[in-house]
Amino acid sequence: MQLAARIQDLKKEYHLSGEVVRALRGVSLDVPEGDYVAIMGPSGSGKSTLLNLLGCLDRPTGGSYYLGPDDVARMSDDRLSEIRASRIGFVFQSYNLIQQLTVLENIEVPLYYQGRIDSRAQQRCRELAQLVGLGDRLRHRPAQLSGGQQQRAAIARSLVNDPRFILADEPTGNLDSVTTGEILALLDRLNRDFKTIIMVTHEDEVARHARRIVRLRDGLLQSDERMREV
């Protein structure tokens, strides 16, 4: 089976006013393609650190991280930017759309940094907006949309570069229960279409949608429980 991501003995230490904080103390995880992983854990467990490392926003102090054949753990800042632009789709708790851009333009942003905006790409952005149910909101700005609609736009954006996996950070944290259901249904559908999803959440309810729940505690893997096969 192809792996979307593989981390081996990943470590991260911070130096805070002379003290060494060991946020991750050696975590290994294989994420096969088509998997849907929920990462859970109390605050301080290393959840956010792992998320930043998986998202290539930060570099580990030890271990390795393969996104495909390359170890991204030692890459330069610019290479990491390229990896983020081409292999990872981000979905954030607070949507993080750019306010002055329309829905369509927001969806295009990752392509922009790959230098790949042409009419075919724009057509794809429209199709993705359609897919998440925003086909009639293309020219709207984020402020004109509800929270659920903004998160749908963000999900469309995360798909535009055809990433190896979608990295979702508390994607329903700011939404009411009805909208939460809608967004989770959308993620479920994407996963059924063989999109790999890694989601950080602290809600059991939300985590139950995943195929597999990984729990962290004190920078170590506490449990890795598979509920459904890929």
Binding site: G55, D78, S81, E82, A85, V109, Y113
Partner: peptide, 16 residues
């Protein structure tokens, strides 16, 4: 700042 963070996350290099 937030916009800069978003753009960086979505693949913008420092030079961008």
């Amino acid at each position: 700042t937030r916009e800069i963070g978003i753009r960086r996350a979505l693949g913008a290099k420092r030079s961008d």
